[in-house]
Amino acid sequence: MSLLASYIEHAVAVFPSLLRGAVITIEVTTFAIFFGLILGTIAAFGKLSKRSFFKIPSSVYIDFIRGTPLFVQILLFYYGIPGLINGLTGEVFRIDPIIAGIVVCSINSGAYNAEIVRAGIKSVDRGQMEAARSLGMTERQAMKDVIMPQAIRLIIPPLGNEFIALLKDSSLLAIISVHELSKNGMLYVSKTFAAFPTYISVAFVYLALTMGISRILNHIERRLGVSDRSE
């Protein structure tokens, strides 16, 4: 019984610190979702483009990011890039860990988003573009008024999964001492050695966050479905 009591005590003691961490986690994830969406959309259209000037950089970006671990990308960006700049210019260059975390997560998420967006656009029936073009619409008009509204409904669900994965993956930023949720848990454990109550608390906070995202996404999905009908 005393074990349970001490676990509860630790869980309560660590909780404020976990909440502060959760705020950082949400912050990083929100920014990364935002920039990742922009990057992903650009890369998706780049890869769909017939011009190699857009197509090749987009493909290289997507393949590189998806083919390497996020963990390594974090290390490369936070330690590698400043080191490279230092070697080239002799100047000391430091990046704020949170900024670095947002940048890496955005770049990482963007690559996955790009494939989701591309797949969504691709899976709209070819006849839709042909019908729009045969009416004299430009490719841009057809994309905006005909293809994208249909693609978005296909894109939203997998994009939601991607956001949830992103939130969980942001825990890797602990390695560059971003004081997010996991890192704050680790710090508490290093002081108290109370691993079980701390990490189970960390896990439950993540669970609460991901369930929150799921709820928001479900809401958006339903809203989109409805607004399309009543337009």
Binding site: G127, A131, R133, S134, L135, G136, M137, E231
Partner: peptide, 29 residues
């Protein structure tokens, strides 16, 4: 695009825009 404005096309599989009402399908272009 100018040419296509003058040449209407009807497809085997209709290719109506599924996210628009019949009226909007006709009015869009």
């Amino acid at each position: 695009n100018k040419i296509r404005e003058e040449v209407g096309m009807v497809f085997q599989r209709f290719n109506l825009f599924p996210h628009m009402t019949a009226l909007k399908n006709v009015a869009l272009a």
